[in-house]
């Protein structure tokens, strides 16, 4: 039997706690993929995935928020059914909604950087509301910009065609998700790990 002799290099306590939260949040993003709340007067139902992308940036901060999103993308790429509609596989990352998926780590990092002003975490409930709103709007613009931009390039559509098919039906839902994310953060029931 093969044996290997080497010393064990333990992972720091802070890193373990942040990492565990990042991994579990990524799994949660997969678990809520099938939850859809119908919206009155809108063809597209409200799905909760982007809400958790917002929360990744708000609660885990720029570094661990984007690590969490990268874990989510990797898990989906190797075949764990975490993408919307129980999809999995590397193909989905290159598929028509691939641009949205690739934007998640960027959006989480951006929201985290704006809200926490750097890599040291602050309590998001104590951050002034306008800053949170600006961060979420910027994150949404990144998600839809990358999502529709990639779809337009991939499927050879013109800009307005991509916006009509891939962004407009979802905008009302986005505003509601921002409101939900703000309500969750302001409730003060979720504390970030401050080192």
């Amino acid at each position: 039997m093969e044996t290997e002799g080497s010393s064990v290099e333990l992972v720091d306590g802070d890193v373990v706690r942040q990492f565990a939260r990042a991994a579990v949040l990524a799994a949660l993003l997969g678990a809520v993929a099938p939850v859809a709340i119908p919206l009155p007067l809108s063809p597209a139902p409200l799905t909760l995935q982007v809400l958790f992308v917002f929360l990744a940036g708000l609660v885990l901060g720029p570094v661990w928020g984007s690590v969490s999103m990268l874990l989510y993308l990797t898990a989906g790429a190797i075949g764990i059914p975490v993408f919307a509609g129980w999809e999995a596989g590397l193909g989905t990352l290159f598929g028509p909604t691939g641009g949205y998926l690739w934007s998640y780590p960027v959006a989480a990092a951006l929201i985290g950087a704006v809200v926490h002003r750097g890599t040291d975490l602050r309590d998001p409930a104590a951050v002034p509301l306008p800053i949170v709103v600006v961060a979420l709007v910027m994150g949404t613009i990144v998600i839809y910009g990358m999502g529709t931009g990639y779809a337009a390039w991939l499927l050879e559509l013109e800009a307005w065609e991509a916006i009509a098919g891939f962004a407009l039906p979802f905008i009302p839902g986005e505003l509601l998700k921002m409101a939900a994310a703000i309500a969750i953060v302001q409730s003060g029931r979720i504390e970030p790990i401050q080192s």
Partner: peptide
């Protein structure tokens, strides 16, 4: 309302998940 439902699922889902994560971190250490 939609916002109420989304924020309830989000808040409860996240607190439960983070409780699990904190226990997991302790167990991993």
């Amino acid at each position: 309302g939609v916002v109420d439902r989304a924020s309830t699922i989000g808040l409860l889902g996240l607190t439960r998940a983070f409780d699990r994560a904190d226990r997991l971190a302790l167990a991993m250490q």
